[in-house]
Amino acid sequence: MTVRPDRPEPMNAVPVRHPGRWVAVAVLAVLAAMLVHTVVTNDGFGWPVVGDYLFSPPVLNGLKNTLILTILSMAIGIVGGVLLAVMRLSPNWILSAVAAVYIWVFRGTPLIAQLLFWNFLSALYPRLSLGVPFGPEFVSFDTNQLINQFAACLLGLGLNEAAYMAEIVRGGIASVEHGQTEAAGALGMSRAQTLRRIVLPQAMRVIIPPTGNETISMLKTSSLVVVIGYFELLTSVQRIYSVNFQTIPLLIVAALWYLALTSILSVGQGFIERRYGRGLQTGPPGPSLLGFLRRSPEERAA
């Protein structure tokens, strides 16, 4: 490399050596090689069996239930969580107290107990009815018909999740500067408009990462529905290996699917994070296809 006379000479210093890092890398490389070797050569992993069952109908059926339970429970959890968070922050102390008690109860008791509770609600209330307390009844249902196993799963997972989401959303809302609410109010925006258009979009930056965690966690937590006799991915593979005793290969089947779903969710989370990060980082926006397309041709050339 030639150095131009007007440029200062580059530093010709000897870089710091990190022998410790190289030792660590060597040790890890050996361990990794051993792992690959045993995974490939140990017949106990039963890779052919894994291949046989990966796309088998019972496994796919379980996978479908895992997906449905996760999506619907998270939907209930997120909507419920936003509602609870708004109630919690309400100037009306009754609303705030109701939300606080809800969160206390649902976070404070085991999820398994809650699932069982919803499932056995009929023991407590054989019939559910709509009407005026101590007054006339309008409609009445048989509890067992109204809350089937699936509904009990959704109630258990969703209502529990709402309590956790409420705290996440509340933290997000609290992270938005009060000046934002004042500026919106001074423009004549109502409290609801301010929340929807100004506060929540900014709170999203804080809300999304833990919500991603919650969703990934829900993928696996949904396997608890086994306690009330419902089934999903993990239950499906358990049912299969309880018959054919191919325990390890079938657990690998489940693990592979969970990993695949988690990976998809992580990618999705990245997209959503970028969407709500708009304008919040200083400096020019980073390279993104959409941003690139939106810019004018001259800017693109620059």
Partner: peptide, 30 residues
């Protein structure tokens, strides 16, 4: 408050909206 404009010491612009979106927000929403 629609008829009373206010300008704050710390600007309090909406950081997730561009300049023009900041200006359009209240006329469109309110």
């Amino acid at each position: 408050r629609r008829d009373i404009g206010m300008v704050f010491q710390r600007f309090n612009l909406f950081p997730h909206k561009t300049a023009i979106e900041n200006v359009m927000e209240a006329p469109v929403v309110v």
